[in-house]
């Protein structure tokens, strides 16, 4: 689809939000305690913020919830039954004001959940999602989108991208059919875009991801991994705040005869992730698990899923209790 650019005035944004909220769930960023940013369902427009740098958690949960029930069952010894989940009950959601790194992450997740066999749970949630992205006019030292082929105004994954203008209004880039439908439905709120000046942040490029990928091919046995992961304590914080980490567990939970099977977030950084029943563990120590995290995102995924497994949001580095700064490490890896 050809991209069209429009202008939406600041005062029209609220009308657009209210109109969309009439028959859809809105998911938008709000300020939380301790100077943190979080996304919330159906907040009042007055709560929604437009000048945040990064939310603590990513928005992957919209398409890949912390817990997704996959089947329900009744266990009756010789007459057990299995019931499907009704995916038609998944509501239409408008993700409002997500930054380009987060929206680009949906493409990465798609490359995991929809390669070869399609995962209907993910696919249906994505299908029911309308993404109104918000380009960044602020960033911090942890942001590195420009190092992974993105930018503060990347359009990847957005249906409409709002780009802040210096005059306080927004340029609206209409990028997909879904976006176009919104433009058509609420055409009165959009004006022609007349080359007004945009207000974007500058994110310094820290490394060349293609070079990193190239270097990683020969880096498996490098002492780098042990040296640089001694301080890693093996928690799942990086994986759980990451917008592209998609490893999951499958578990059963039953009360009496009735129960469900669900999948829930997991992390390759946990020691038991790969533990065999026999007691053998292919990734026995933390350095091997840290190596897996980096190689998976920057070597295996580009080769296997044709997508880089990182969008440069910097959440893992912000969340890490021991300063495992991924951009810093990638920069170092570029020259080993």
């Amino acid at each position: 689809m050809e991209t069209t650019s429009k202008t939406i005035r600041k005062h029209s944004l609220e009308k657009l939000y209210a109109s969309l909220a009439e028959n859809r769930k809105m998911y938008a960023p709000v300020a939380e305690a301790d100077n943190r940013i979080g996304y919330k369902y159906n907040p009042d427009f007055s709560e929604v913020i437009f000048d945040h740098i990064q939310s603590t958690l990513s928005v992957k949960n919209v398409v890949f919830p912390r817990v997704e029930n996959v089947i329900f069952y009744t266990n009756n010894k010789n007459d057990s039954t299995v019931t499907d989940v009704d995916l038609n009950k998944i509501p239409e959601v408008v993700l409002w004001g997500a930054h380009p790194c987060d929206t680009a992450a949906y493409d990465v997740l798609r490359s995991i959940f929809c390669w070869d066999t399609k995962d209907e749970f993910f696919a249906k949630r994505l299908e029911k999602l309308v993404v109104i992205g918000l380009a960044c006019h602020k960033s911090d030292a942890h942001c590195f989108c420009t190092s992974v082929g993105l930018s503060p105004d990347s359009t990847k994954g957005s249906d409409i991208l709002l780009v802040p203008l210096t005059n306080g209004d927004y340029k609206a880039e209409i990028l997909t059919e879904k976006g176009n439908r919104i433009l058509t439905d609420f055409s009165g709120l959009f004006e022609p875009y007349q080359d007004e000046e945009t207000k974007l942040t500058h994110v310094e490029q820290q490394f060349d991801h293609k070079q990193v990928t190239q270097h990683l091919k020969e880096a498996f046995e490098n002492p780098f991994w042990v040296e640089n992961s001694l301080r890693c304590i093996g928690c799942g914080a990086c994986a759980y705040v990451c917008p592209t980490c998609a490893c999951f567990d499958i578990q059963d939970e039953a009360k009496g005869k009735n129960g469900k099977r669900y999948r829930s977030w997991d992390s390759c950084g946990f020691g038991l992730f790969t533990l065999h029943t026999s007691g053998h563990n292919p990734r026995e120590v933390q350095s091997q698990r840290w190596r897996q995290r980096i190689l998976h995102k920057f070597s295996y995924m580009p080769e296997r899923n044709a997508s880089l497994g990182c969008v440069g949001c910097g959440r893992c580095s912000r969340a890490c209790p021991v300063d495992m700064n991924i951009a810093e490490q990638l920069q170092a890896l570029q020259s080993i």
Binding site: G234, C235, Y240, W265, F270
Partner: peptide, 18 residues
């Protein structure tokens, strides 16, 4: 809580292998 177990991993007294 997202069950990332950072609380456990950061604690010197939580050393159990399982």
């Amino acid at each position: 809580c997202i069950k990332c177990y950072a609380c456990r991993q950061a604690c010197p007294m939580c050393y159990c292998t399982r």
